[in-house]
Design a protein around this nucleic acid. Structure first.
Length: 200
DNA sequence: TAGGCCATCTGGTCCT
DNA sequence: AGGACCAGATGGCCTA
């Protein structure tokens, strides 16, 4: 099957920029150290002499560059976190207080993409199968409790739960809808395919 | 208290 | 030269 991406990488970049936290300011802002985490500020040498010695000048210059680099790095990481937040926001709803960690977000997204792709694939298969119109993509009940999934979010080894059980498979064949169990076990447990091809 | 997660600093490397 | 990216180090916070 072929899964088309309608969003070009550049769009993703734009999305990330759009989601960048507005309170992130440039070097001038000195904005956003975590609460209770004061930024370490390098004491800048107050050069009162007209012509500082080259060594001192070099050191001061190096210090300024380091401070600027730190600002850029902080900004860069904040952008990265904003992108992760944007990703979290489009993933299926989770229990309210279950904020995914970074690694969990990435793995959850990976599995989510896999489930969506599977949905498309099965829809296509149904479309070609018979006279009936293709089955509508079943709605995901995003409000369903998924608390028991958390154990598998970040497991590196496939728990096997992603496999469609015979009961699930027969249920699909019978009803034309895909059991939620299939989705959530897939989301939470990953797939053999994905886990075997993208572990890290 | 140990371990996990995170933000930040830092120096190195690559690219423009 | 300077910016972007990366990985290691460090310390704070939180939870079991």
């Amino acid at each position: 099957m072929s899964l088309k991406l309608w969003c070009a990488p550049n769009d993703l970049r734009a999305l990330g920029a759009a989601h960048a936290s507005p309170d992130i300011t440039g070097p001038e802002g000195e904005p956003d150290a975590a609460p209770g985490k004061p930024l370490k500020v390098f004491a800048r040498r107050a050069s009162r002499t007209k012509s500082p010695k080259p060594r001192e000048e070099q050191s001061a210059r190096r210090g300024r560059r380091r401070v600027k680099a730190n600002d850029r790095e902080r900004h860069r990481m904040h952008n990265l976190n904003s992108a992760l937040d944007a990703l979290r926001s489009i993933l299926p709803a989770l229990p309210e207080d279950a904020k995914l960690t970074k690694i969990e977000t990435l793995r959850f997204a990976r599995n989510y993409i896999w489930v969506l792709a599977e949905t498309l694939r099965m829809g296509e298969q149904r479309g070609h199968a018979g006279d009936h119109p293709p089955a509508a993509v079943p709605d995901l009940d995003l409000d369903s409790p998924v608390s028991d999934c958390s154990a598998g979010w970040d497991s590196a080894s496939p728990p096997g739960s992603c496999r469609v059980s015979s009961a699930d498979a027969s249920a699909r064949e019978g009803s034309g809808s895909i059991p939620l169990k299939f989705y959530f076990t897939s989301l939470c447990g990953g797939s053999d395919f994905i886990n075997s091809t993208w572990h890290h």
